[in-house]
């Protein structure tokens, strides 16, 4: 069964949040995760990153990218950026909303004034195991409804035949 990109992005964000990542870092992980999966890179790198929270790539890559970006001069920035064997770092770069390119000697160039080129992301095959694991993490954020919230939530009464 294939899944939509948005479906997998949302699940990855929630999984990262469930693993303990703060919201901004979780969102960046979600964007990188779909790029990673669409590029058929090693899915275990994503699981490992989730396991490593509150340390590891989910916390470190956004900071590393921020360090390079904040040294910008007139919106152009560059700096050294190491790519891991599983290429999750590369997925983070490719998920950036601005133009970014990585040289063979691991220098990252950013143009903070130009949006990244749109890329066609295909449907994603996510194994049942990965889906279940991420869903379990995501479920850590869910709150059981109370009677009060149920009554005051959306919709009408128990039946609505107006």
């Amino acid at each position: 069964m294939t899944r939509s990109v948005n479906e997998v992005t949302a699940l990855a964000v929630k999984a990262a949040r469930g693993a303990g990542a703060p919201p901004a870092q979780a969102t960046q992980f979600g964007a990188a995760a779909v790029v990673h999966l669409c590029a058929a890179r090693d899915v275990q790198a994503l699981d490992a990153a989730l396991d490593a929270v509150p340390a590891g790539p989910i916390m470190e890559y956004p900071l590393a990218l921020a360090r390079i970006a904040e040294a910008q001069v007139e919106c152009i920035a560059e700096g050294a950026f190491e790519v891991d064997a599983a290429a999750l770092a590369r997925s983070y770069i490719e998920a950036l909303p601005c133009q970014a390119s990585l040289t063979t000697d691991h220098v990252l160039h950013l143009d903070l004034n130009r949006p990244a080129a749109r890329r066609d992301l295909p449907r994603i095959e996510l194994s049942d195991e990965v889906y279940a694991r991420w869903s379990a993490l995501a479920a850590k954020l869910l709150v059981p409804e109370s009677d009060a919230s149920r009554i005051s939530g959306a919709g009408a009464g128990l039946t609505d035949n107006y």
Binding site: P23, A139, K140, L141, L142, V143, P144, E145, S146, A148, S149, R150, G153, A154
Partner: peptide, 26 residues
């Protein structure tokens, strides 16, 4: 703000009278 377990939909709770504030949405 939180996400409900029942339908995975956003909800709004009362912090001092309902459970779940520890799982608050940002």
């Amino acid at each position: 703000w939180y996400v409900s377990e029942a339908k995975m939909e956003p909800r709004l709770g009362l912090r001092f009278s309902e459970e779940g504030a520890g799982l608050e949405s940002p």
